[in-house]
Structure formats: C-alpha cells, structure tokens
Design a protein around this nucleic acid. Sequence first.
RNA 1: UGUCCCGUGGUGUAAUGGCAACACUGCAGAUUUUGAUUCUGCCUUUCUAGGUUCGAGUCCUAGCGGGACAACCA
Length: 547
Amino acid sequence: MTEEKSLNFIEEIVEADLAAGKHKTIATRFPPEPNGYLHLGHAKSICLNFGLALKYGGKTNLRFDDTNPVTEEVEYVENIKQDVQWLGFQWSEELYASDYFPQLYEFAVKLIKKGLAYVDDSTSEEMAEQKGTPTTPGINSLYRNRSIEENLKLFQEMKDGKHVDGSKVLRAKIDMGHVNMLMRDPVLYRIKHAHHHRTGDAWCIYPMYDFAHGQSDSIEQITHSICTLEFVPHRELYNWCIEKLEIYPSRQYEFARLNMTYTMMSKRKLLQLVNENLVSGWDDPRMPTLSGVRRRGYTPEALREFCEKIGVAKRDNLIDIGLLEFCVREQLNKIAERRMVVFDPLKVVITNYPEGKTEWMPTENNTEAENGGIREMPFSRELWIEQEDFMENPPKKYFRLSPGGMVRLKSGFIIKCDEVIKESNGRVAELRCSYIPESRSGHDTSGLHVKGVIHWVSAHHAKEAEVRLYDRLFTTEDMNAIDDDFKNHLNPNSLKVIRKVFAEPELAKSKPGDKFQFLRMGYFCTDQDSTKEKLVFNRTVTLRDSK
RNA sequence: UGUCCCGUGGUGUAAUGGCAACACUGCAGAUUUUGAUUCUGCCUUUCUAGGUUCGAGUCCUAGCGGGACAACCA
C-alpha cells in the first residue's frame, strides 16, 4: 500500500539528523548570486532545497549572495524571485548576504583579535606566487606577522576608505603549507570602491564568498547548507570559520550539478550569448534559463517532475535532454488543448461540396483531459492540408493521400483524391477531391476504413500566423568536454521561422502563454510577441515521432 | 604525479551484507478519427585485482578511470 520511495543521500542525512534529535526542524536556503538569470541547474537546486523543507516540515530562505557589487544588479534580483515563484516555491524569508555586512565586519575583527587574520599589502601577483601549487606548499607573506593592534588599525582604515582598491586585503591566518589550497591564508575581505545594489556606497570593503556564505548560513541557523560539488574543498574553510567564530554550526553538503546534453549551463557563457546578441535575450526560448524555457512553453510541473526523475547524487552526470522533453510532453499531453494548423499548405478543393457552404464540425479539445470539452471547426469547399500529407508516388507504408486514394480529415469527412493539378514546373498546386457525405465524423455510415487521418483548415476561415520552430542550441552532446570556443558549437538551425501558416479560427482568441498541441505538428505556446493582428506561436517540443 | 570527491545497462537513479531494479532512450507488436497518447514485449548493467564473510554492487586494500582544487568570482 505505502509505496516505498527510496531516499537520496541528502534526505538520508536529514532523516538521520532528525531521528538523532540533532535538529527539531530543518532550515535550508537557496543562495543565488544576482549576476545572471536562473537556469535548469538552479531548478535542480531549488527543487532540492525547497523540496527538503516541504517534505520534512522546515523552512527555506531565499538569500542573495551579493558580496561582489561589480557584477550584481537589481534586475537579476527581480527576475530570480519571479523564477523561483514560477517554479512553484515560496521562500520563508527574502534575505541578502549584504544585510550581514556589519556583522561580518565584526566577525573579521574577532578573528583579528584572536590572531587568526591579518592585513596583507602584497599584490595579487605576489600572493599568487606565494600560494604554491596543489603539489607544492606556499610560503608566508611578508605581512603575516603584523601585530593584532596594527591589523585592527589597518582593517579599520580599509573600511574607512583610506586605501585604494587592490592595495590591501584581510587574510585568514591558517597554514600556507596546507594540502587544501583554500586553507593557505585565504582572502577574507577585499577593497572595492564600487556601488552596491543594496548598500550603495556604505561600504568599500566586501567579504569574499568564503567569509560570507557560511556565516550567513549560521546567522540564519541553516541546518543543511546544500551546494554543488565544486564547493567540497571549501567545506574545510566553511567549518574553520564557524569553529573559530564560535557561531551556530551549519553544515555543508554537496551534490552533483546538473549537466544536460546539447546544453550549456554556465551563467558566464549564457551572459556572453546575450551580450553578443547570439540569442534574443535571457528569455530566448532556446536558452536553458527558466525564463527561456517558460517562454518556450515548458511548465513548472514538468520541470519539477524532471528534477524528481534525475535524482540527487554525487557522481558527475550528463542527462539526456530527451528526458526533459519527455517530462514536458507528458505534462502538455494532459493539459494542452488541441488545435489544427497547416504549416506548408496545399490547396484541396472538394468538387462535390457546395460553394459558399460552411458546416461547423465539433471536435474534442483534449481527449486526455477530464473535461476537455469540444469546439467547432468550419468545414467548407476549399481547404488547406499539409503538403507532406500528399504524395504522388507513395511508398508502401504511406497511409495518407495519394492520387485515387482516400484519407480521413480529422473530425471532418473522408475525401478521395480525384485529380492532381500541377504548375508548369511540375509542382503540385492543388488537389481536386470528392468527399463522402456519409463519412461525417461521429456519424459515419460509409463503412469505409481509411487508416490515414490528417489535419486541415478551411481556407476561407483560416487565420494567418507565424510559428517559430526551435531546436537544440548546440550541436555537441557534451559541452563540458569541448576545448575550443563554445560558440563554435552553436546550432545554426536552432531557430526556424515560418512567417505564414494557416490556423483554425479558434486560435485567434489565444493569449501569450497559452499552450496547445497543434495536431500532428507538436506542442506550441502563444508567444509574448503575439497580437490579435499577428499571431505568433513557439514550438515547445515536437510530438514523439515513430514514423 | 599531492589532496579530496566519484565509478551499477546507451543515459540517469535505486538496491543500506541476502534473487541487481525503476525511469528515459532504442527495437518489436497491439490499439488508435493525431504515424500522438495508451498498452505489451525485448535489448542492455555492478571498472579491475586481491582480501573480510556462509554470502560483497554494498565493507577493507591496491590499481585503473573520471572529476575538483593554484580568482582580491560565487
């Protein structure tokens, strides 16, 4: 009865902690840096962090890791908040690392007083030299043995703006010979006379990640601080700070970030695509950003299901983008209303159908949905069908229209192709067909059995529209494995626009964000560029094709 | 040639010392007024070598392979 769902390794840790009474309730946080838009990798993290709190009855804070004013902007803050909510999560508190600047400063003073931090005048080049390599130990800085009093005075001066950018840093005094390079006297504070999106010009020194993140977790009493694998070496420093500062012991756990085939998940590179106009913006439907996939027509439900399916573990992974598409189709199949749109039109004239007559044919909006309902489509003498659905010399397994052959017009009639009219160049210009009046959908007494069923649109009633067909942004499966410029791997055919397609009239009512399945053509959503005068649809994902 | 993390079908993820399973993909077939959906079946798996144990994917050791680490980024 109760379906045992296995736990991921972080859930196991949480359950063990709860069982041992280590925590009464858990607290997690989602800590984006507001220097770009959220992408699918963040979705994994969001689902993990918020999901944990939801599952175990805790809370999740949204905390912006805004300790580097030169790359961070409010625009990003606003979009990140919107994306998290769109995904379906609500944070407990909206916080900023910059809220803690005064306290972080006091933490630094405390370290200095304990003889565990010092002001260093070395240049960044000198520091890099003294740092050593992963296999050779570093050497001590000339300034490492300054007195506590001098350090206190110098640090105060740094804060007071008495020193220029890059002239001094505050460093932890740990061990320049440590095997973990992050423990070789890491920089804690640097001078940046830069305007911060929240604190303005109040500060000219800013804490580094390692001196802000763990302390922020601690201040918020985060029980489980979950991050990606590249922070594993930071954990030692994370714990060092907590121990020396004698503050609440948040604990860090690391999982493997999401990698997907034919996809690039680096914020820096995505920014480059935006800046160089290789895409139309952060919300270009080809982008793996949440705003991109939203505009593409992906649903939050599909994304959450995807995150559930990929699991959480510590080994490097490369998820087939097909899995994401599967989740999107699975969801859209349930909710998207069906419509008919002809992309590559071929005129069909029903010679035995009266001119000027229109019949309204009822058709299901969605047989998969509970109460899908029906709508009516106009049927008349002149129709558009898909060029692809007619073949003059069909191969054996082809079961659509061919000369002398019959096909069912979905929710319409069975028609027979009597004559093919060609242009002088041999191109098929028009089909002359006859319809079987007794074959009307739902009232078929013709006794005919045709295997092929195709979509169609009444020529007189059709609405013109534009469709944008998207494909993968990159042509290389594993974009992490390339060693040349990632832009060499851009798919030149990632966007194909068809400026004029013929849509059934019902579509004129659609509004941006509406999701449809265009019968036999794929899942589409109405783009934000769409207007009453000019309808625009984005292809979200193709239909599975087992032809 | 250091430290740390990780090795289970094609791709992911489970199996918590006791019959290696689930999903996706792929390939067949059934149903279908969408060549969709749905349904059925099939293909394919524990990196290697030792050790512990009645019994090892799981524990230990070594090797091999992959990844991370030398920003005043996060």
